[in-house]
Design a protein around this nucleic acid. Structure first.
Length: 466
RNA sequence: GCUCCCUUCGUCUAGAGGCCUAGGACACGGCCCUCUCAAGGCUGUAACACGGGUUCGAAUCCCGUAGGGAGCGCCA
C-alpha cells in the first residue's frame, strides 16, 4: 500500500452539475485533491453532465467557484483544458460512440427495446417473488430479424451491456481491501440511454480510464457498482483505475446529510460566515485519521494526508467541531484580514479588541452596537448582576465615571473607595451596565471606544430605580 | 428478497495478538490565571455493539447475532 502512495496519483472529482457543492462531495473532492498534491500527481475536474434535463451551466460555474473558494484547484478541467479534453461529458459523445460500436461488434452489448413500464413491471414481479430485481434479459437473445422488426415499428432502443456469466470480479479497494463479486448477481445494465446519451456506469468508468486516472475516490454507495464498471473496462480492454470507497458523511442524527440537517452545502456555510480553511480542516478529519491534531494550513495539508487512513465507517458531521476550527482559523488571521472577512470598515483597534469574542460575523455586529448603538435587553444572568449591585452602586459609578476621564483604573479606584467593592464584585456590574453582557473583551479598552455620554447614561440608568 | 459494506468515549479518531488498567482531538465539568468570556496551563467524566470460539494471551483473528447503511434505476 505504501508503494502506491509514493507514486504520483492522478485523481479526479467528477460532479454532476445539478446543484451546489454538497459537503460530502466537497470532502471526497478534498481527499482526491490532497492525494494528487501529496504525491505530485494531477487532479482532474470532469463534469458529468450527460443528464441534459437536470444539468445546468449555472451549476457547473457555481461548482467550480465553490471548489476554488475551498482552495482546491485542478490541473485539468473544462475551463483550463488538458490532454484529455473535453472535460464535459456532454461533449464526449464521439469517444463514447466508438466504444459502443466496439462492444456491439464483440457482442458484449445489445439494443434493448423494453419500455420503462415493462421494466418496472418486471422488477415488481421479481420483488414479489422474493427475487432480486434484475433485468430479465428479454432483449438479449433477439435475432437480427426480430430487431429489424422492432426498428420498423419505430421502437427506440437503449444499449445494454451483456454481463458475462460465471465471472468473478476481484479488485482491491484502497479503503476496504480485497473485494469479490459474482457476475451472476448483476443484471445487464444500460450503458446508452434511448436518447443516445451515455449512462453513468459507462461514461464514468470509461473516462476515468481514458483520462489516466489512477485513483478514484468516491462514496461508499458506489462500492457495489464497481464490479459493473470493471467488467465494462475489461471488455473494452481499458486500464482499470484503482478505486477507494470512503464512508459516507452523515448528519448529527446519523442519517445521510440532507436538508433537514440545516446547512449541507459548502455554499451555505460560506454564507453563514465560516472560513474555507475552517471547513477544510474539519472535512480533513471526517473519515480520515490525520497524523496531527492541530490546525493545518492549506499548504501543509497535503503532506499530512494519509490515503491509507481513510475511514470505512460513516462519519458524523458536527457543527461544534467546525466551530473549533473556525476559532483556530480566526486566531491565525491579522486584524486586517478579519476585517476583510467581516466585510466591514471597523477601525482596526476595534477589531483587535473584539476578535476573540467572534466566531461568525453577527457576533461582531453585537459588539459594534455596544460601542455605538443601543444595548440588547439584559439576559437573566445580567439582570441578576445589576440587581445584586443595587442603584446606590450605579449612582456612585456614575459620579465616579464623570471624574475618571474614561480611565477604568481611575474609575475603579474611586468606586472602591466609595463602595468598598473590589474585584469581580466591582467590575462585573460595571461591565454589564456598560456593555449589556456578562462576558466580553477587556473592559478598559472597550470603555475607551464607547462615547462618554453613552457610557454615562448607561450607568445612570441603573442608578434610578430597582 | 438478494449481494455488499459498516460498528472503539456524546462526536472525530489511534489501535493491524501482548507496548491497552484502550491513547489523542472536539464537546462537557473542575482547578489555575483573570473584572467576564476567549486563549493558555493542569485535570476529570466517558468507549472496544452482543454471543461464541482460536490462543498462554483478542479491541485486534474466525463464526454467528443484533443494529445501521448501500446497491440491485434509461439518477449520478
Amino acid at each position: 500500500m505504501s508503494q502506491s502512495n509514493e507514486t504520483r496519483a492522478v485523481t479526479r472529482f467528477a460532479p454532476s452539475p445539478t446543484g451546489s457543492l454538497h459537503l460530502g462531495n466537497a470532502r471526497t473532492a478534498l481527499f482526491s485533491y490532497l492525494w494528487a498534491r501529496k504525491t505530485g500527481g494531477r487532479f482532474i475536474l470532469r463534469i458529468e453532465d450527460t443528464d441534459a434535463e437536470r444539468s445546468q451551466l449555472r451549476y457547473r460555474d457555481e461548482l467550480m467557484e465553490q471548489l476554488r473558494w475551498l482552495g482546491l484547484d485542478w490541473d485539468e478541467g473544462p475551463d483550463v483544458g488538458g490532454p484529455s479534453a473535453p472535460y464535459s461529458q456532454a461533449e464526449r459523445g464521439e469517444f463514447y460512440r466508438t466504444l459502443y460500436a466496439r462492444l456491439e461488434a464483440q457482442q458484449q452489448a445489445y439494443p434493448c427495446y423494453c419500455t420503462p413500464e415493462e421494466l418496472e413491471l418486471s422488477r415488481k414481479l421479481q420483488r414479489m417473488a422474493g427475487k432480486p430485481p434484475r433485468y430479465a434479459g428479454t432483449c438479449r437473445g433477439l435475432t437480427a430479424a426480430q430487431r429489424a422488426e422492432r426498428e420498423a415499428r419505430g421502437l427506440k432502443a437503449s444499449l445494454r451491456f451483456a454481463v458475462p456469466a460465471g465471472v468473478v470480479v476481484e479488485f482491491t479497494d484502497a479503503v476496504h481491501g480485497p473485494q469479490r463479486f459474482a457476475s451472476g448477481d448483476i443484471g445487464d445494465f444500460i450503458i446508452r440511454r434511448e436518447d443516445g446519451t451515455a449512462a453513468f456506469f459507462f461514461c464514468n468508468a470509461v473516462d476515468d480510464s481514458a483520462m489516466g486516472v489512477t485513483q478514484v475516490l468516491r462514496g461508499d454507495d458506489h462500492l457495489t457498482n464497481t464490479p459493473r464498471q470493471l467488467m465494462l473496462l475489461d471488455a473494452l480492454e481499458l486500464r482499470r483505475p484503482g478505486y477507494g470507497h470512503v464512508g459516507l458523511l452523515v448528519g448529527e442524527d446519523g442519517a445521510p446529510l440532507s436538508k433537514r440537517h440545516g446547512s449541507t452545502s459548502a455554499h451555505e456555510f460560506r454564507e453563514r460566515g465560516f472560513l474555507s480553511i475552517a471547513i477544510v480542516n474539519q472535512l480533513f478529519r471526517l473519515g480520515h485519521a490525520a497524523d496531527v491534531d492541530g490546525w493545518l494550513s492549506a499548504s501543509d495539508m497535503p503532506a499530512h494526508f494519509r490515503p491509507d487512513h481513510l475511514g470505512r465507517a460513516p462519519a458524523r458531521f458536527e457543527e461544534s467541531q467546525l466551530v473549533h476550527w473556525q476559532k483556530e482559523s480566526l486566531e491565525r488571521m491579522s486584524a486586517a484580514e478579519i476585517r476583510a472577512w467581516l466585510g466591514s470598515n471597523d477601525p482596526l483597534d476595534f477589531v483587535e479588541l473584539v476578535r476573540h469574542n467572534i466566531v461568525l460575523p453577527p457576533d461582531a455586529s453585537a459588539w459594534r452596537s455596544v460601542i455605538q448603538g443601543d444595548l440588547a435587553p439584559l439576559g437573566a444572568e445580567e439582570q441578576r448582576i445589576i440587581a445584586a449591585a443595587g442603584p446606590a452602586f450605579f449612582a456612585a459609578a456614575s459620579d465616579a465615571f464623570a471624574q475618571s476621564n474614561r480611565d477604568v483604573k481611575v474609575l475603579a479606584k474611586i468606586l472602591k473607595e466609595r463602595t468598598g467593592r473590589k474585584g469581580a464584585e466591582l467590575f462585573m456590574p460595571l461591565r454589564v451596565a456598560l456593555t449589556g453582557q456578562a462576558h466580553g473583551p477587556e473592559l478598559a479598552p472597550l470603555l475607551k471606544l464607547i462615547p462618554p455620554q453613552i457610557a454615562q447614561r448607561r450607568l445612570e440608568s441603573h442608578a434610578q430605580n430597582s
